[in-house]
């Protein structure tokens, strides 16, 4: 794990043993970020869900079957050498960049030229292309948030860790003096989760909960061995869940985690 030179490293720790796959995080994200609905949502290639909840199972027959859910926001990869974030490194339009001071991978849809190179580069399917304009039903504009700009067809969008909330929290801090605290900047999914499975904060700040949680020996990251050095950690006691979330050879032991 390379340390970010920046001030903050915002990240997330998701406890998969608490997650019950209710989808509240995903829907909260949609309402926070003005994500629309297409007429045919069965088409998962075109459906846009910044935070998607995947379902996995242990592959065993009834009644030993077990299921688990994997909420997957943008993993905000830091990359292993010189911030080699997969999507950022391929964008020809600088429509996405790695923010050194927050560790957030930005996405500016209005700057995007729609080449979709980043969509292909992302190992997590976290980037979405707007194949169509969103067919907002008549009257739906009244329910849209002014804090996130609605997108048009032909551009890529993705999870931003609700960056607009950080912007607003900073506004308040400017006015009142002081700095943005842990409670002042929380993502919509974190707040919504009825099981409290998601924890969000600054991984660099020892006072934030995520700082300790990410050090849990049971914490791991999605496809960690790709070297994407992501900032979304997952925790699970279940061996099979850990195995499903990275590429392991049959019979290969899980990496020994350092004792916390």
């Amino acid at each position: 794990m390379s340390a970010n030179k920046g001030e903050h490293r915002f990240g997330m720790v998701i406890d998969l043993d608490k997650c019950t796959g209710c989808g509240a995080c995903s829907v909260a994200c949609m309402s926070e970020n003005n994500i629309g609905t297409l007429l045919d949502e069965t088409d998962k290639i075109r459906s846009i869900t910044w935070l998607r909840v995947y379902q996995i199972d242990n592959g065993k027959a009834f009644p030993d079957t077990q299921i688990a859910f994997i909420p997957r926001p943008c993993q905000h990869c830091e990359g292993s050498h010189g911030h080699h974030t997969p999507c950022v490194s391929v964008c020809p339009a600088t429509a996405t960049d790695y923010d050194e001071t927050t560790g957030i991978v930005s996405q500016i849809p209005t700057r995007c030229i729609g080449c979709r190179y980043c969509v292909g580069a992302c190992p997590y399917h976290a980037r979405y292309f707007n194949w169509f304009d969103v067919p907002w039903p008549k009257g739906a504009e009244r329910g849209l948030s002014p804090f996130v700009s609605p997108r048009m067809r032909g551009v890529v969008e993705k999870c931003t860790f609700c960056y607009h909330r950080y912007q607003r929290a900073k506004n308040k801090a400017f006015l009142e003096g002081g700095s943005v605290g842990e409670k002042d900047y929380q993502t919509a999914c974190t707040e919504a989760c009825p099981s409290g499975a998601i924890t969000f904060g600054d991984l660099n700040n020892p006072k934030h909960k995520v700082h300790e949680l990410a050090k849990n020996p049971l914490a791991f990251r999605l496809l960690e061995r790709l070297g994407t050095n992501t900032k979304v950690y997952y925790v699970s006691q279940r061996d099979w869940v850990q195995r499903k979330l990275d590429n392991y050879l049959a019979g290969e032991k899980l990496p020994v985690k350092a004792a916390s």
């Binding site: 209710c22 829907v27 039903p137 919504a192 989760c193």
Partner: peptide, 30 residues
């Protein structure tokens, strides 16, 4: 613009389910 959890509510403590979080879609749809 949004329905979210009420952190002060002693039973739901800020959490929501999808039906809560998307309630605005039933309000604003002519």
């Amino acid at each position: 613009i949004r329905v979210e959890g009420n952190p002060e509510h002693p039973l739901s403590q800020g959490g929501v389910v999808p039906a809560d979080a998307s309630a605005v879609q039933l309000l604003y749809n002519d």
